[in-house]
Design a protein around this nucleic acid. Structure first.
Length: 589
RNA sequence: GGGCAUGUGGCCUAGCGGACAGGGCGAGAGGUUCCUAACCUCUAGAUCGCGGGUUCGAAUCCCGCCAUGCCCGCCA
């Protein structure tokens, strides 16, 4: 399906028409047009868009809002505007109704597999997400990052941006030096069995052992260890190849395992960008040199620091021992992003907000256009008893959550096999497929459907509740669409809205028409959860249609063909909305 | 102490300046000779944390307070 068929969407076009029409009517009367008050009306109003301008103009015109609305409705010339059929006053509101072309084109656009994708914007954006330190298994506390990050990247991709997904790898920090020292020092025989037979689970045992040692061992032994850790850090700073290799071995192993875990979501990356890259290529040194020359930098307590006007906390950018810090390297990293991309989006936990704020201000001081940088901030998922920690080994691993979710989904599928009304048979592969799609989908949907800033306390029962407003509800709609389309045989969909006369059909069609607008708006605000809200609304509409309107058993062939087109459009809208969320759309359930 | 975020029926959540605050779970009552009942219908349940303010209009904006979380490291 070609990009040539991608459109900005009927609703977006209709929205522009409504704005143009209303603006023209207001200008003709010399009224202000700065706030047209265009909104989507409540569900029980048939109009597709409405305006509340009449409230604002009532004062100027010296008439009550309903009178103003009635007059303005008379002024609007619907004929001149694409998709606009008519405008009707309704109390103080103006209700705008689209014409049949709007519905016909929605139906027609909906036949495309790519429905919901917006035209290419010729703008590149790098989405950095996850970027968890390669110290051990991915736990649920930070699982929000890949799930939200992947959805943000998908969303921007659908909205027409050229998206690259990056994982920024901390391979230069103290934690990794500790890890490397511990890996080289301790004997596997002294470690507990790994919780799972995969690299990061085996490796994290050294990390935990090392941290434990540094906390509990006698001082002389700790000092010796610290000297070794320092040697690794200094080696990296000095560009010592041997140091890079030692660290690289640990990082590669752990990261390899973490990637396997993330791939289950699936969250995949175009590039793993290593911090050490910006040490080796000299750009961190360059940043340090420029910062030293800056008016707001000071040399205090043997370290170079940057002061801020509005932040009471200095940013140390060069330690007293001459080594750089995470943020120093991140500055070089971001200048590299600016050089290679039009926009940069970073998904990060709320604990990084201060650091992100300092980073942004410092980048501006260094002469960068920081409008290109946007953050998506999320709160961590905590356990009822507190925070999850890789170092302390507290927390629920993402692998375990996914395993449990898939297992429960399998139980559900199997328990339903007996009382299926449907004649088709699900074989063992179907059961596997459905269990995975539903189980993983439920976990992702549960996370991505919520506003990221809200805190989540992890509870098994809640995370695995398939009954609630969840992935299966919305996935089931897709499966139902596929079921109908599969049985249609040689009866072809026809994108003609004329036979679609019931409220249930029109409501569904209106919901289908909204997808491109939802994608555009959600992408503008980097809010993928709005797409999840949309899937629920689309699902509600579809289920009502399904109940009230037989498709294959409709009275005449024209209605069958039109309803088939509506089902196909609903299917593509749902499949692509789910694709944005990173949730699979099952063909059968 | 300072900064940032969050606070919507028992629980989870949408809405974030406009039409009666939508859903879901849980509770109660129903629906399947018909394209998959992982569905649908109905009932009960909300001082939108509290108090002020701005506005024709506030869950939504502003101020204060309370509660919770995060941050305030030459860690990341």
């Amino acid at each position: 399906m070609g990009a040539g068929r991608r459109t900005c969407g009927m609703l977006l076009t209709f929205r522009e028409s409504v704005a143009d029409a209303l603006r023209a009517a207001l200008e003709a009367r010399d009224l202000p047009t700065d706030d047209l008050g265009i909104e989507e009306p409540p569900a029980d109003v048939d109009a597709v868009l409405a305006s509340s301008v009449a409230f604002r103009l009532a004062g100027d015109l010296g008439a009550p809002p309903p009178e103003v609305a009635a007059e303005l409705a008379g002024d609007v010339d619907a004929d001149d505007h694409r998709f606009l059929d008519r405008v009707e006053p309704n109390g103080p509101y103006l209700n705008f109704f689209p014409d049949e072309a709007y519905f016909r084109e929605t139906l027609s656009a909906g036949l495309d597999d790519d429905y919901g994708r917006l035209p290419d914007r010729d703008t590149s954006v790098v989405v950095e997400h996850t970027s968890a330190n390669p110290t051990g298994p991915v736990h649920v506390g930070r699982a929000r990052n890949p799930i939200i990050g992947d959805a943000v990247a998908n969303l921007l991709d659908y909205a027409g941006y050229d998206v690259d997904r990056h994982y920024y790898v901390n391979d230069a920090g103290r934690q990794i030096a500790v890890f490397t020292w511990a890996y080289e020092t301790f004997d596997e025989a002294d470690l507990p069995d790994p919780a799972r037979d995969r690299a990061e689970y085996r490796m994290v045992r050294y990390y935990r052992k090392g941290n434990e040692f540094l906390e509990e061992a006698p001082d002389p032994e700790v000092e010796a260890a610290e000297a070794e850790i320092q040697a690794i850090l200094q080696g990296l700073e000095a560009g010592d190849e041997a140091a890079y290799e030692r660290v690289g071995e640990v990082v590669d192993a752990v990261l390899g395992g973490m990637r396997e875990c993330l791939a289950r979501l699936p969250a995949e990356f175009d590039e793993f960008v290593r911090e050490t890259r910006f040490m080796r290529d000299g750009s961190t040194d360059d940043v340090v040199a420029r910062l030293k020359d800056h008016d707001r930098s000071v040399y205090e307590e043997d370290a170079w620091q940057l002061t801020f006007e509005e932040i009471d906390k200095n940013l140390v950018f060069l330690r007293s021992d001459g080594t750089s810090l995470y943020t120093t390297r991140d500055l070089a990293h971001h200048e590299w992003k600016f050089a290679n991309y039009d926009r940069a989006v970073t998904v990060l936990g709320e604990d990084h907000k201060l650091q992100a704020d300092q980073l942004r201000r410092t980048l501006r001081m260094l002469g960068n256009d920081v409008d290109a940088l946007e953050n998506v901030i999320y709160s961590y998922v905590d356990l009822p008893e507190g925070k999850m920690s890789t170092r302390e080994g507290t927390g629920v691993q993402l692998d375990d959550l996914l395993d449990e979710a898939v297992a429960r989904a399998r139980e559900e599928v199997e328990s339903r096999l007996d009382d299926r009304l449907r004649s088709d048979e699900l074989d063992a592969d179907d059961v596997d497929r459905i269990a995975r799609q539903v189980g993983v989908g439920a976990v992702r949907y549960d996370i991505v459907a919520k506003q990221p800033t809200k805190g989540i306390t992890f509870e098994w029962e809640q995370a695995l509740d398939f009954e609630a407003q969840s992935a299966p509800y919305v996935q089931y709609v897709h499966a139902r669409c596929c079921g109908i389309l599969n049985e249609a045989g040689d009866r072809e969909p026809t994108p003609d809205p004329a036979p679609l006369t019931t409220d249930a059909e029109r409501d569904l069609l209106r919901a289908v028409a909204r997808l491109p607008g939802v994608v555009a708006d959600a992408a503008d605000d980097l809010e993928p959860h709005r797409v999840a809200t949309y899937t629920r609304e689309l699902g509600d509409r579809f289920n009502r249609f399904y109940r009230e309107c037989p498709v294959l058993g409709a009275d005449d062939p024209e209605t069958v063909a039109a309803r088939l087109a509506l089902v196909a459009a609903a299917r593509h809208a749902m499949a692509n909305a789910l694709d944005v969320l990173g949730v699979e759309a099952p063909r059968s359930m």
